[in-house]
Computed example of a mutant assay.
Amino acid sequence: MQLVVARIGRAHGVKGEVTVEVRTDEPELRLAPGAVLATDPAAAGPLTIETGRVHSGRLLLRFAGVADRTAAEALRNTLLIAEVDPEELPEEEDEYYDHQLMDLDVVTADGVEVGRITEISHLPSQDLFIVERPDGSEVMIPFVSEIVAEIDLEEQRAVITPPPGLIDDRAEIVSSREESPRGESGDAS
């Protein structure tokens, strides 16, 4: 099975290094020197990692055969794909691979059907479930513990506790201003 483990960003310096947006919880395993990764688009690869280092909080990689900035920049936005045993599970208990979450039924804690996960969007701040509702519309649900209460792989469902307005139009609007009764404004009329 293939998993997207990173997306190549811009070139860094003049010797062929690139920044990467890491999409794996195991970069030391998947993005280690010597790793051979497939690519999307396929014509860009396969790529073999020569070196890797962290610079200013970003992972920088250099690939075999990519020796200058021009060649590095040509790889921008290429997805790096690792071949993974389908039986392999993440090391941490509350971690999941995208393929484990795809097609899970999404229900609220009180059993209301929300829809089915059709995509997982990896953003810098958090991951989002893209959920297709029974009527064909989509809703985005942040994959954070405050909202996603449980992932049950055996039952093939994700249980959520959404805040008002996330999955429906009945948002509670609360004003921070307290209304004062007439005549108590403090002026001496």
Rank of each mutant, 00 (worst) to 15 (best):
45 G>H: 03
125 S>K: 11
189 S>I: 10
1 M>N: 07
37 L>W: 01
107 V>I: 14
125 S>P: 02
88 E>C: 02
150 E>F: 00
172 E>R: 12
28 E>V: 01
130 I>P: 00
94 D>F: 10
163 P>M: 03
29 L>R: 14
71 A>I: 02
79 L>Q: 09
80 L>S: 07
154 E>Y: 12
29 L>N: 05
181 P>Q: 13
187 D>S: 08
42 A>N: 01
20 V>H: 05
70 T>C: 02
149 A>N: 10
103 D>Q: 12
92 E>F: 05
185 S>D: 15
118 T>E: 14
4 V>S: 04
172 E>K: 09
151 I>Y: 00
9 G>Y: 07
171 A>V: 05
14 V>Q: 15
135 D>R: 07
134 P>H: 08
92 E>K: 11
1 M>Q: 10
130 I>V: 15
101 L>M: 10
139 V>G: 03
11 A>I: 11
111 G>N: 13
19 T>H: 08
108 T>E: 06
59 L>N: 02
97 Y>E: 07
135 D>I: 10
158 A>E: 05
52 G>K: 09
73 E>I: 03
158 A>H: 01
123 L>F: 05
147 I>H: 05
126 Q>M: 15
188 A>Q: 02
128 L>G: 00
188 A>C: 00
40 D>Q: 09
89 L>I: 04
111 G>E: 10
164 P>Q: 06
91 E>V: 13
161 T>E: 13
154 E>M: 13
64 A>R: 15
61 L>S: 11
146 E>R: 13
150 E>S: 01
76 R>V: 05
74 A>Y: 06
54 V>A: 08
184 E>M: 15
178 E>D: 14
156 Q>K: 15
6 A>R: 06
96 Y>F: 15
77 N>E: 13
54 V>I: 14
159 V>E: 08
29 L>P: 00
80 L>E: 11
113 E>H: 13
13 G>F: 01
129 F>M: 08
78 T>N: 05
21 E>H: 12
130 I>S: 06
138 E>D: 12
144 V>M: 10
5 V>W: 01
46 P>Q: 02
147 I>E: 06
37 L>Q: 06
186 G>L: 03
159 V>T: 14
5 V>C: 04
138 E>A: 13
85 D>V: 09
109 A>L: 12
37 L>M: 06
165 G>D: 06
67 A>F: 01
7 R>H: 00
138 E>T: 14
177 R>G: 06
113 E>M: 14
137 S>G: 07
184 E>R: 14
51 T>H: 14
64 A>F: 03
147 I>K: 09
131 V>I: 13
86 P>M: 08
42 A>F: 00
138 E>K: 12
137 S>Q: 11
145 S>R: 13
101 L>E: 05
32 A>H: 13
181 P>R: 14
45 G>E: 04
138 E>R: 15
141 I>L: 06
107 V>D: 09
46 P>Y: 00
51 T>W: 07
31 L>F: 13
159 V>W: 04
126 Q>Y: 09
81 I>N: 08
74 A>G: 05
162 P>H: 03
150 E>R: 12
186 G>H: 03
168 D>F: 02
172 E>Y: 05
174 V>L: 12
158 A>G: 01
9 G>I: 05
61 L>C: 12
156 Q>P: 04
35 A>G: 06
136 G>F: 10
51 T>V: 05
139 V>E: 01
175 S>K: 07
26 E>D: 11
82 A>R: 07
116 R>F: 08
53 R>S: 08
27 P>T: 09
134 P>D: 11
170 R>D: 14
